[in-house]
Design a binder for these strands. Structure first.
Lengths: 336, 336
DNA sequence: CATCAGAAGTTATACGAATAACCTATGAAG
DNA sequence: CTTCATAGGTTATTCGTATAACTTCTGATG
């Protein structure tokens, strides 16, 4: 900047004021032009560090995730957060810890020493997290999970509402014998599993349908679970006309089971998934009706809250999981 | 740091020297302890911006991608780059431009004003890129693509070798009638398409097998292409005993075609894919033998080159695509 | 006793930008 | 002719750290 000043024949202060001051015509047109020319000629670029050093806060937000970046699932969450940050002129300093607490601590220290404007602390799936204390030093938001101690506010999918929406969609299509293949509720205790099950139960009860214990199955999210439970359900004496699967991958397993047993989807069996995995759900035959995890919305909202700064403690903001209608649901056939 | 100095009853310079100097015992043990105590008590953390301002280069590397972060494909490339950077104590400043050149230019400017140690310029798929000139100001490497003007060095998958490996694997299993369903070579001109086709051709010729034009099909990478071409190939008078598919998704389409026509994989038809998409290839039945795009290796290598700094101009470093053997390849049956 | 080497710190300054406070013509008003 | 407002700048200082150069003291040596 001193070089620019010299080239333009003015003082460094003048250059700074010309370049930054939105406040009217403090300087003559001539001076402004000379400064601008010098800037262009010398290819001057401001040094962000000097600016931060003086101003206090950097134009960066920290994004710390466990496996978020590597997960095909949630990569979009980073993109959304970054988009939102950029709209406010901020860049994202991202770290994928891979679950390594030491790396996590070290990179948080580094981020804080870079005076980030705030931190988004994200997880690959909806769970209860032990959030590092150090995040208290700066506006921080937990993303796609919740703070176990309730000190930080968080943004997460509304699993219960999602389970309710999925089940009600099947009920609305005329189904009454609706099975659930879900992640294990007791074993995992995950909000995702617990919430979806609760939503399923609520929808059934609200519509006067009994939750048949034989129709509620638990797995671990992968397609073999879907395959086995669906096979068992479809070969039982009293078989369901629809299955709500807690993950798209288990839904895929159910598809394979149906194909193996000669049941046709959706005419013999309706299926609703969960996750709207873009590499899977739209490509199944028939394309899978499922619920979308609102990654974009959550990523944006988390940055919103960070920028807002002064958040009420520990509030959990639940975001709606929209139903993505495709071709795996129809009316049940009349059955004996 | 002045506060720490005051609390420890020494000068600021002493604090700085005690905290940084690896160079032996310049200070008494007592002083060191007092400084360290003060640091701990006050929770002092160094200001990275002041450090950079004095030292010149920041502990950050810029990572600019088009759609990399959102692609389920290549998210791991970021993780690998970040891991490698962190091993050298650097953080990644990531931006996903979504193909927006204005955003790209703006974020590059911002990165440069943050004095990044270098920039990794990544693309979602292997293509020839117009790399922004401004990257010349700092050590930069093109990742998963190549610089059209050959000024920057780049790291990309060795598509030709990959196509060769896949084809030779089928030949080694005893196949001679090997079809190719590839991305369109002429239309796209993509290194991925051109290279894999070239590798296929070379393997065939080297083993004295003729490339049958009827056996070479072009699509656009999605599973309907695989489905249609495989259907056509399998219903022809002279049908192949193996298909090499240029993408896993087209391989999936081929699976569906085979199932529809009553061909069993691998006993009636062997298939090799490309991409090793983790959400697809291992989960198909039978699990798909395919080639892996070396995202981790490339991501690490790109950061290596950036840190190395002084690279020969325009060198393209091709990285091997390893064969991932699963269950979709076996010997051909004796056929009439 | 003069001299000197080393140990243990301190002082002063630079990095690059922002900004409060100050300076100096110029012309207009009283 | 004095006074003074204003346009159009400049000077000096601040942010937090690193480090070259300097100081001071202590004990040892010839």
């Amino acid at each position: 900047m001193h070089d620019v000043a010299a080239a333009a024949g003015v003082s460094q202060a003048t250059v700074s004021l010309v370049l930054n001051s939105a406040s009217g015509s403090r300087f003559s047109e001539d001076t402004r032009r000379r400064v601008q020319d010098a800037v262009d000629r010398l290819g001057y670029r401001t040094n962000a560090h000097a600016k931060v050093l003086r101003g206090g806060v950097a134009g960066m937000i920290g994004f710390v995730g466990d496996f978020v970046a590597s997960s095909p699932f949630a990569g979009r969450i980073i993109e959304a957060a970054q988009d939102r940050a950029w709209e406010s002129g901020l860049l994202l300093l991202t770290v994928n810890t891979g679950g390594d607490r030491a790396l996590e601590a070290a990179s948080l220290e580094t981020m804080l020493s870079y005076k980030v404007a705030g931190v988004v602390y994200a997880s690959m799936y909806h769970q209860l997290l032990d959030v590092p204390e150090v995040l208290g030093e700066v506006p921080s938001v937990v993303l796609n999970s919740e703070d176990r101690d309730g000190r930080f506010c968080s943004v997460a999918p509304d699993e219960e509402e999602g389970g309710y929406t999925a089940t009600r969609h099947l009920i609305a299509a005329g189904h009454t014998r609706i099975a659930l293949i879900n992640n294990d509720v007791l074993e995992s205790g995950l909000p995702a599993a617990v919430g979806r099950f609760a939503g399923y139960s609520r929808a059934m009860q609200e519509h006067g349908l009994e939750v048949n214990p034989d129709f509620v199955r638990f797995g671990h999210g992968a397609e073999p679970d879907g395959f086995e439970h669906a096979t068992s359900l479809l070969t039982a004496a009293c078989r369901p006309t629809a299955i709500f699967c807690g993950t798209d991958r288990m839904a895929w397993g159910a598809y394979q089971a149906a194909a193996t047993l000669g049941f046709s989807i959706p005419s013999d069996l309706s299926i609703v998934g969960f996750d709207n995995q873009e590499t899977l759900a739209p490509h199944l035959r028939p394309a899978l009706t499922t619920l979308e995890l609102p990654f974009e919305a959550m990523g944006r909202r988390a940055v919103d809250l960070v920028l807002q700064g002064t958040e009420p403690e520990g509030r959990v903001e639940l975001m709606e999981c929209p139903l993505i209608e495709r071709n795996s649901v129809t009316h049940p056939k009349e059955m004996p």
